[in-house]
């Protein structure tokens, strides 16, 4: 007991001394307070923010191996080449390391922005694409009501009737779908490659345009309005964290009331890390030639 209370006494004294040092109790002389402050306490810098001339910070890359002293670092290198998955990034306790957490957040932010932001007007002007809307008024409605994104608005229908060449062999449409950023990243290379190849093959290509808040099925509506033989949609895919910029091409031959999903030919994974967009454009030319010749797309083409 005696030893215990002695220990308690000591602890209390130490705590009081510590508090005194920090100026949290009253019974310390002002002089003493002044000196301890200067000696022990870091002073916050109150300088105003000035341009430091440093480059802005960037999000850490997660391509490295963060495991300390791994059993076989070569093995992890090979693993990381085999998959884009977030591996070999170790841990802080059981939680991710700070760099991995920030990278995840940045990738998610990019994915969210791809979905929720619109394709910019400047981009559409540069690509010489005019804009039409679907029945979906805004992104929230577009996301909650898929059927609205499959139909052009009455105004949209009027505009394309007015501006587009009728009865084309191939009508190309650019549709934001679930990734506006994939459109801005890929269309500048896919569209000219595709148009060049089709034109060189003597195929009549319609007037391309852009559809906001559109889904895959909107190509059926466009095909019917313009009486197109084939419609190609360049449409943004649902973004993942590895890339938010992946685009698909959906192709339908002569869409009508009986069109089902299996009638569409699809190529996904068009982006710089997948099939490069210019290469994809040239590949699509071959596919379209085949579809026009077979007068069928989707499962019917493969039969």
């Amino acid at each position: 007991m005696a030893a215990e209370s002695q220990m308690e006494q000591l602890i209390v004294e130490n705590v009081m001394k510590e508090l005194a040092k920090r100026g949290l109790t009253g019974n310390v002389s002002p002089n003493q307070e002044e000196t301890t402050k200067k000696a022990a306490r870091p002073q916050p810098k109150s300088e105003p923010y000035r341009e430091s001339g440093d480059d802005p910070l960037t999000i850490p890359e997660i391509t490295g191996i963060w495991v300390p002293n791994p059993e076989n670092i070569e093995a992890i290198k090979v693993m990381k080449q085999a998959t884009p998955a977030r591996i070999g990034l170790y841990r802080a306790g059981a939680r991710p390391k700070t760099g991995a957490m920030l990278k995840f957040m940045a990738d998610h932010a990019q994915a969210m922005d791809a979905v929720f932001l619109d394709v910019s007007e400047e981009f559409l002007q540069r690509m010489n694409l005019f804009l039409v809307d679907t029945m979906a008024q805004d992104k929230e409605e577009f996301l909650k009501r898929p059927e609205l994104g499959r139909k052009l608005s009455p105004e949209g229908e009027r505009i394309i009737k007015e501006k587009c060449e009728k009865n084309p062999q191939v009508q190309i449409i650019v549709v934001d779908g679930l990734s506006s950023s994939s459109i801005e990243a890929n269309v500048p290379d896919v569209l000219p490659a595709l148009t060049q190849g089709l034109t060189a093959a003597g195929i009549r290509v319609g007037t391309p345009f852009f559809i906001r808040n559109g889904r895959v099925g909107v190509q059926d509506h466009v095909g019917k309005v313009l009486n197109a033989e084939v419609v190609v949609s360049l449409i943004g895919e649902r973004p993942g964290l590895v890339t938010a910029d992946s685009m698909s091409a959906y192709i339908i031959y002569s869409p009508n009331e009986k069109t089902v999903e299996a009638d569409r030919t699809v190529f996904s994974n068009i982006h710089r890390g997948g099939t490069p967009p210019a290469e994809a454009g040239a590949h699509l030319v071959d596919v379209l030639k085949r579809i026009l010749k077979a007068k069928a797309s989707g499962m019917k083409l493969n039969q």
Binding site: A193, Q196, A200, A278, G281, A282, H283, V285
Partner: peptide, 14 residues
């Protein structure tokens, strides 16, 4: 080396 022979070939052919 890079994956671009389809588009390069298309341009060359034209």
């Amino acid at each position: 080396e890079k994956d671009c022979a389809k588009i390069l070939g298309q341009c060359l052919k034209i």
